[in-house]
């Protein structure tokens, strides 16, 4: 019972699981970051720019220091700066967070391309993976269960946030600010400050998602490294109803959709598989259509969010 031929069509679900884990990791980080930001009552569409910039910085720092983890840390720090910048601009009256987000997206991508030129050629050290498939002799199972360390970190983070939103002072404060700025002010909280920090943390997590792209999968820096994960993560958060665990599973779903094309290709489907590369985008459209309503605002949406007001 070994060898590729032996598992036959089982290769598709296996490749899907492996692919889902690989492709979903950036979604998890951007999604969790955006969940924190949106729970505070703000939307940061700049996550896409932060992701691309994080990918560039992570890759560059990993090359220069030889440590992929330093690259992740640098990407996280840069993402937090992007988030702070977004949060700072939005703390002025009459500033629209969505418009600023779009501007920040362009800025992040532009800066990444500008500073990233020298890093296109050299190869950076990759992030380590943890082999959960040691028990099996089947190479496909081994490959599918080669889980990257950031995925596990993402799962832990989702569990932690799910707990922290309910059981910590800061979690409750975040939800208060996101649901009713009026109530927050009445209890002496400064909504703008809470949102500033929430956007910074959200940006930092998006930076980590970017570092994953360049340091693990696909694993190199180029200008087209992101295929819109930063934007789709915003849709994902809505689909997940602003719930961290929901976010994790939604990311897996999106990841699985993203891996569909490759999975089909791997079992020898030679025609039409490229159509499935569009699966995440189609999924985004379907989800946004199915969960929207003509007359009513979303259930579970933070009350202060500009799209639900």
């Amino acid at each position: 019972m070994s060898g590729p031929a032996a598992i036959g069509l089982w290769g598709v679900p296996l490749a899907l699981i492996g692919g889902a884990i690989r492709v979903s990791t950036p979604y998890i980080f951007v999604g969790l970051g955006e969940t924190i930001t949106e729970r505070s009552g703000r939307i940061n569409l700049g996550q896409e720019g932060t992701l691309v910039f994080g990918a560039m910085i992570g890759y560059g720092v990993a090359i220069m220091t030889g440590s992929p983890w330093l690259g992740v840390a640098a990407a996280c720090a840069c993402g937090a700066v992007f988030g702070l910048f977004h949060g700072w601009i939005c703390s002025f009256p009459k500033v629209n967070d969505i418009a600023i987000g779009i501007a920040m997206m362009q800025l992040g991508v532009g800066l990444a391309i500008f500073f990233g030129k020298p890093f296109i050629e050299p190869a950076a050290p990759h992030l380590p993976a943890i082999s959960l498939g040691w028990w099996s002799a089947v190479p496909q199972i081994k490959a599918a269960l080669d889980v990257n360390s950031l995925f596990i970190l993402g799962l832990a983070l989702a569990l932690f946030l799910n707990w922290a939103f309910r059981n910590t002072k800061y979690g409750l404060m975040l939800r208060v600010v996101g649901d009713s700025a009026e109530a927050a002010r009445a209890m002496g909280l400064n909504p703008n400050r809470v949102r500033l920090y929430a956007t910074a943390i959200g940006g930092g997590l998006a930076g980590i998602g970017g570092a994953y792209l360049s340091l693990y999968y696909p694993g190199s820096w180029n200008e087209g490294i992101s295929s819109g994960q930063g934007l789709m993560a915003v849709a994902l958060v809505i689909f997940a109803r602003w719930n961290p665990l929901g976010c994790f599973f939604a990311a897996l779903l999106f990841g699985g959709a993203g891996a569909l094309g490759t999975a089909l290709q791997s079992v020898g489907v030679t025609q039409g598989y490229y159509l499935f590369y569009a699966a995440p985008y189609v999924l985004t459209l379907i989800i946004m259509t199915a969960t929207s309503s003509r007359s009513d605002s979303l259930v579970g949406a933070p009350g202060e969010l500009s799209i639900t007001k």
Binding site: M173, V176, D179, S180, A183, G303
Partner: peptide, 17 residues
């Protein structure tokens, strides 16, 4: 006008205040 946070439970509203 109510100053309770609608998505928080009564207990959460009391404790966070």
């Amino acid at each position: 006008h109510f100053t309770l946070v609608p998505s928080l439970t009564g207990a959460e509203n009391l404790v966070i205040s």
